[in-house]
C-alpha cells in the first residue's frame, strides 16, 4: 500500500514532496480532490487534526501510520540520499537553500503574486517593494549559478527542487515582468531543472517548462 | 583551529548553532564583537559578502573555508546524529519542528515582541492578533508535550533546541502575559531543557532558566 499525501490541487508546497518521491521511487498516493480529501473540510475533521494538529497541508501519512506535517520535512523524508545531500557539507547546503527559499523567496514572491490572483488587495507600494526583494533574491541565486548548474554539488538536490517550486507562482503569474530583470543563469538553471523527466511528470511543470524555454529563448535573443 | 560563527551578541538564531556545538563537541569560535566582527560593518565588507551573499548573520566559516548561511543549516551541520535524529523518521520529525518554529512561532512572536523592544511601532490590533497566534501555537506544543518530554524521541534533539531558542524573545520580553495562558507542559519542557548543562553554558539561558523555574513555580501554585 502506498503512503498518502493530503493536499489541494496545484499546491507548490506538495510538489516538493511529489518530485522527491519521483526521484527516490517512494510510492505516494495524492489525496487532493473529493471524495479522498476536500481542502477546507477534511483538514478540519477531528481525525485529521489528531494526526496533524495545525490542520495544514501538505500532510503525509505513511502506510505504517507515521505522520508528518511541514512540507520541507515531508520532502526530506521522501527523498533519497542523493537529493538530501550525501555528505555532511552537502546536506547542510541543501538545508541552507531550503531555508533560503522559505525565508527569502516566499514572503516577497507571495506579496507580489497574491494580488495578481485576486486573493489580496493590490497595494502599489507593497508590490514595488516585493519586486525589489525578488530582484535582490534572484541576484543572489544568479550569482551563485554563475559558475554552477545546480545549487549544491553536480546534480539535482532537494535545494533545487525547493527553490524551483518556490518560484513557480512567480513564473506563472508575473513571468513577463520577471523577464525584465531576469537573469540568464536563473532561467538556465530552472530550465534545465524543469525539463528533467522527473519534473515534467506534473502537468504543472510542463506548463512551466514551456514558459521557461520561452523565457530562455527570449533571453538568448536579448543577449544576442 | 576552530571554525568561526559570525553574529551579534544575544542573537537567538546563533544560540541554536552554539548549543548544537556544545552537544556535539564541535569547536566553534564566536566572532560577535569588535575587532573580530562588528555587525553593520563587517557583514557589509566585500570579503564577507563574497562568502555570505545575503550579508546576514549568523554565518559560519569552517577552518577548511567551508561557508554556510541560514541558522538552521549551520545548527544542523554542527549537530551530531543524536541531535539531527538518528533514524529517517526522527530526522524528518526534527525538520518538521524546525520548520514549525520558523513558520509558526517566529512570525507572531516577532509581531508581539518587536514593539516591546522599540524595534517596531506598537499596533494594538496587530499585537492582540499576534497573542492569539502565539496562544494557538503554544497549545499545539502543549498538546504534543502532554505525553512527551521531548519533541522527538526520548532525548534532546535539534527540534527542542530550535523551538526553545525561537521562544526566547517571548520568555524574556512578555513572560508575565505569557504566563496567563501558559501551559504547564510547555514550561516543564522548556524548564527541563534550559536546565541542561549544555544550555546553561550561555548566560542567556541562566536568566531564562531562572525565569522558567519561577514560571514553573507559579504554575504549580496556580494549579494547586
Amino acid at each position: 500500500m502506498a503512503a498518502t499525501l493530503y493536499t489541494y490541487p496545484e499546491n507548490w508546497r506538495a510538489f516538493k514532496a511529489q518530485i522527491a518521491a519521483q526521484y527516490s521511487g517512494a510510492r505516494l498516493k495524492i489525496a487532493s480532490t473529493s471524495p479522498a480529501f476536500t481542502f477546507g473540510q477534511s483538514n478540519r475533521s477531528p481525525v485529521f487534526l489528531s494526526n496533524f494538529p495545525l490542520g495544514k497541508v501538505p500532510a503525509y501519512q505513511g502506510d505504517d501510520g507515521f505522520c508528518l506535517f511541514e512540507s520541507n520535512a515531508i520532502a526530506h523524508y521522501l527523498s533519497n540520499d542523493a537529493l538530501r545531500g550525501s555528505t555532511p557539507q552537502a546536506s547542510a547546503q541543501v538545508l541552507q537553500w531550503v531555508s533560503f527559499a522559505d525565508s527569502e523567496i516566499i514572503p516577497p514572491a507571495s506579496a507580489w503574486v497574491f494580488p495578481t490572483l485576486g486573493i489580496m488587495q493590490f497595494n502599489k507600494q507593497a508590490t514595488e517593494q516585493a519586486k525589489e526583494e525578488v530582484k535582490r533574491v534572484l541576484a543572489v541565486l544568479n550569482q551563485h549559478l554563475n559558475t554552477r548548474t545546480f545549487l549544491v554539488g553536480e546534480r539535482v538536490s532537494l535545494a533545487d527542487v525547493t527553490v524551483v517550486c518556490s518560484l513557480l507562482w512567480l513564473y506563472k503569474q508575473v513571468k513577463k515582468s520577471l523577464f525584465y530583470f531576469f537573469y540568464p543563469n536563473r532561467a538556465r538553471f530552472a530550465g534545465c531543472h524543469v525539463n528533467l523527466k522527473q519534473f515534467l511528470a506534473f502537468n504543472n511543470f510542463s506548463i512551466l517548462s514551456e514558459s521557461i524555454s520561452v523565457l530562455l529563448f527570449k533571453i538568448v535573443i536579448s543577449l544576442a | 583551529m576552530a571554525a568561526t560563527l559570525y553574529t551579534y551578541p544575544e542573537n537567538w538564531r546563533a544560540f541554536k548553532a552554539q548549543i548544537a556545538a556544545q552537544y556535539s563537541g564541535a569547536r566553534l569560535k564566536i566572532a560577535s564583537t569588535s575587532p573580530a566582527f562588528t555587525f553593520g560593518q563587517s557583514n557589509r565588507s566585500p570579503v564577507f559578502l563574497s562568502n555570505f551573499p545575503l550579508g546576514k548573520v549568523p554565518a559560519y566559516q569552517g577552518d577548511d573555508g567551508f561557508c554556510l548561511f541560514e541558522s538552521n543549516a549551520i545548527a544542523h551541520y554542527l549537530s551530531n546524529d543524536a541531535l539531527r535524529g538518528s533514524t529517517p523518521q526522527a530526522s524528518a520529525q526534527v525538520l518538521q519542528w524546525v520548520s514549525f518554529a520558523d513558520s509558526e512561532i517566529i512570525p507572531p512572536a516577532s509581531a508581539w515582541v518587536f514593539p516591546t523592544l522599540g524595534i517596531m511601532q506598537f499596533n494594538k490590533q496587530a499585537t492582540e492578533q499576534a497573542k492569539e497566534e502565539v496562544k494557538r501555537v503554544l497549545a499545539v506544543l502543549n498538546q504534543h508535550l502532554n505525553t512527551r518530554t521531548f519533541l522527538v524521541g526520548e532525548r534532546v534533539s535539534l527540534a527542542d533546541v530550535t523551538v526553545v531558542c525561537s521562544l526566547l524573545w517571548l520568555y524574556k520580553q512578555v513572560k508575565k502575559s505569557l504566563f496567563y495562558f501558559f501551559y504547564p507542559n510547555r514550561a516543564r519542557f522548556a524548564g527541563c531543557h534550559v536546565n541542561l548543562k549544555q544550555f546553561l553554558a550561555f548566560n542567556n539561558f541562566s536568566i531564562l532558566s531562572e525565569s522558567i523555574s519561577v514560571l514553573l513555580f507559579k504554575i504549580v501554585i496556580s494549579l494547586a
Binding site: S103, I119 | T33, I106
Partner: peptide
C-alpha cells in the same frame, strides 16, 4: 488553487521585520 492558496499562512511582512531587526541590532552594536 488560488482559493486554497489564500488560506496559506505567509509572513508577507518578513522583509520589513528583517530590516527593522537589522537596524535595531546595528544600533545596539554601535
Amino acid at each position: 488553487a488560488a482559493e486554497c492558496l489564500a488560506q496559506e499562512r505567509i509572513w508577507f511582512d518578513k522583509p520589513r521585520y528583517d530590516e527593522a531587526e537589522r537596524q535595531f541590532y546595528e544600533r545596539m552594536n554601535g
